[in-house]
Design a protein around this nucleic acid. Structure first.
Lengths: 202, 202, 202, 202
DNA sequence: GATGAATGAGACTTCATTCAT
DNA sequence: AATGAATGAAGTCTCATTCAT
């Protein structure tokens, strides 16, 4: 590390160093997918390896922190969507949820990337439910309400959760494959429409 | 015994060891997800570590072989489905494809498991298109035919591939989460029906 | 490592490699007292670091093994002394014990060295009683027998164990300071005599 | 306030910080035996790590200072005992020495603890004679005087130093094992008596 | 002078790979 | 061709020391 970057670091506040490390880790995750080496994170953050260990007791803890931050953030987004659409029709609610997830994912691309995507990552020793479980729970609630209001056909109730879950995972995948800054069409509206109306030509 | 038949025997024996190693590797992958160690594969196969290197020049090659075998097998299944349903309606063709994929996945659980699932695994240095690309290509073809035959609404043509892809990934996920031998409902038929008719209550 | 020593190693039997490592570790302990590095042990044994881990799962285990081997060996010596002098007078028994310890220590110089000497070494996670405890227990038994036989003055019974323990530790210290191969006077006989008769000039 | 007194104040303050650090180090040594970390010493002293380095150029120097202070203090005690008992009988002198050492050790428990006990600690790079050497030198002098005065049997003169040394080490050990504030019997008197009279039952 | 975050050399440990038997 | 002990590069983590504030 050269003198300049070192000085820059010194002037940074302690809290921001922690954040800088997390951001660096996120960047490395985005770049390298697996085999995330502490050395690379340190280099990306512009600090020495030892510094990482001043903020996180182990590699595991650093990874868990990233995973958990992402989950918390996502959960907040989802709860917000839930609150914002209380009482609306299912189509509006689903569209809003999809749009919310798109927004969330664009903000957290890096972190979401790290295989955290849809399964309880083996790196995550927190015992917290994986993000997808949180989403699924909300979707199930949403579908049951819609069913009670007779907005959706009861005969497919067994596979609705599965289908919506598939849509959401696809949204994750789409964002993951997108390059930073790419413009995307409004998939949310169209997905919900198709889901409601079906593909069958009249 | 002449030289030739002896060599043939050798070749056959060698091939079976090779297969045993691949199966062992598949089993280990299924058990451990990541961190697949050569030592564990050797133990599972009942051979020495050195033997692995008599059949594969490196860990990478062993992994690639598994990935590629799986891809070839899957491709064969898909082509078969394509041939078997030539000229049929899209709903039948999709249902058949889904059923085919279920069958394939149950046969190749282990191998499919290894994150090989839907992206060009970083372990795969073969440069071959990932399995999902093959599926998507076929699905696109299938959709275009359906469009020409006015079986599906043209206005959602941009998101059909995406939706079917989502369904297929979900199928992969369902099988992956299933325990060996679990009985599963006929998702294929219902998924296709829902896709065609939509969720909207009449 | 050069080719020659490598070949020498390869021809060594597996069990002897383990022993060679333990001996090498003992030699390093003798040389460096503290800061015993795995690298140095490997170098001393003429093997690579990784080889150490083929025989011991960790540094800790290697150290514990040394400690425990030494303890077992010492215990055997002590038990033997006990058996050999059953029924004799205390002076003979003590002399025999001292001589036995001298013999043991000369055989196990290296290993005894490593602070293992008299306390439950912090390196030893085995939960076994430290060597000195074993000795002390035997000595106490020996003193009580002598007391019953009225061979020793009862009024100092509280400090006899302490004094004998001090003698024994001194024996350990003497051997530790001795260079390999040094000739030593017969401390055992004289120590016991002095202990029994006292220093007071007539 | 003139320059001089200001500097004196500074010096005094500095000295007290220095002392605080040494005491803290002593406390940590007492607690942790080995693995004495600068961070722990700083925490115990209530100063920053950097402050340690304002008073000691290195960990080594800090440790050496402790060792040497202890040696100086002990030497003063021993010289005092020597002076106080000039011309007395050996039994009185030994008893006084033992009592003096007990007193010293209780005052300096912590520092004495750190394996500094009886050998030229590897931490001590000062080249000074270890404490035990100082004691032994005095004891030798004391024994030779007693021999001249025919107070002790000449035939064990070769092992007297060794035995007294063993006693003294045992005293160190006893104090080390004692908890702070434990009450101890008067070992000094009884040890000397036993040494002089012997254990042999009349 | 005090501070303590940052540093990085160095120790431990793992595991893909080699190669003599 | 099979074996598996030996190898050592590479990764994680620790902690004495530095230095800008």
């Amino acid at each position: 590390m050269n003198k300049t970057s070192k000085n820059q670091l010194r002037t940074r506040l302690k809290e921001s160093t922690r954040e800088a490390i997390l951001e660096a880790a996120a960047a490395v995750i985005l770049k390298t997918k697996t085999d995330i080496r502490m050395e690379d994170i340190a280099a990306e953050a512009g600090v020495a390896i030892g510094t990482l260990y001043n903020y996180f007791t182990s590699r595991q803890e650093l990874m868990d922190t990233i995973t958990q931050k992402r989950r918390s953030a996502a959960e907040a987004y989802i709860r917000q969507s839930q609150a914002d659409t209380e009482g609306m029709q299912i189509s509006s609610r689903l569209r809003h949820l999809f749009q919310t997830l798109f927004k969330f994912l664009e903000k957290h691309r890096a972190v979401t990337h790290h295989s955290l995507t849809f399964k309880l990552s083996q790196d995550d020793a927190s015992g917290q439910p994986p993000l997808i479980a949180i989403v699924n729970e909300y979707v199930l609630d949403l579908l049951q309400t819609a069913l009670q209001h007779q907005e959706i056909r009861p005969e497919y109730m067994d596979i609705y959760p599965l289908v919506i879950s598939a849509y959401i995972k696809e949204i994750f995948a789409i964002v993951a494959e997108q390059e930073e800054g790419d413009k995307m069409p409004d998939y949310s509206t169209r997905l919900v429409e198709l889901f409601m109306k079906g593909a069958q030509a009249s």
